[in-house]
């Protein structure tokens, strides 16, 4: 067992977890933040993406014990009373259907837009599609996810 302390969505949390506990398990089972989803076992689908110290990470392949002191943001911590522009854009553009991949998509997309803006780079639709390499959606065919991200990028 390892005792870990971290900040999740702005709140200090701690827990004793077996060493092999994944961050996704810690979030879902210990903190009951079930918005972070697990869709595969091989770090391919991206439903589990959260931000760790401001960077998008697949929480299904990150050991919770390695994150003592980290600052973690999950989908539950994205909206601030009002929906984040990315969340709103997914609603406005029908960027989700079953909703299972959506939390990971949104976490990946927020980072994507922020990174491109910080670098002063143009986020084209081709770039969006390339950036979504680590996120699988089975419902939308990506068409409206790309539109949602373009829309949010204009507003963020």
């Amino acid at each position: 067992m390892t005792t870990i302390n971290m900040t999740v969505n702005g709140k200090a949390v701690s827990g004793d977890v077996p060493d092999q506990t994944l961050l996704s398990e810690f979030l879902r089972e210990n903190l009951r933040l079930t918005g972070t989803h697990v869709g595969c076992d091989t770090s391919q689908c991206g439903a589990c993406v959260v931000h760790i110290n401001g960077k998008p990470v697949k929480s299904c392949s990150t050991l919770a014990a390695s994150l003592d002191g980290a600052d973690v943001k999950t989908i539950e911590g994205v909206s601030n009373g009002e929906l984040h522009p990315m969340q709103q854009a997914f609603n406005d553009n029908h960027g989700l259907q079953c909703g299972f991949c959506t939390p990971g998509m949104i976490m990946t997309s927020i980072d994507m837009v922020e990174r491109y803006k910080a670098a002063g780079k143009d986020l084209t639709s081709d770039a969006i599609r390339a950036e979504l390499e680590g996120n699988i959606c089975r419902c939308t065919g990506y068409h409206n996810i790309v539109k949602s991200i373009e829309d949010a990028a204009a507003k963020m």
Partner: peptide
């Protein structure tokens, strides 16, 4: 019409079977 159900899915509040304990 924009979907009524989206808010819970975009904010991580959907309730899937594995979320039930």
């Amino acid at each position: 019409v924009k979907r009524k159900e989206d808010k819970r899915f975009t904010t991580g509040k959907g309730k899937y079977t594995d979320d039930i304990r």
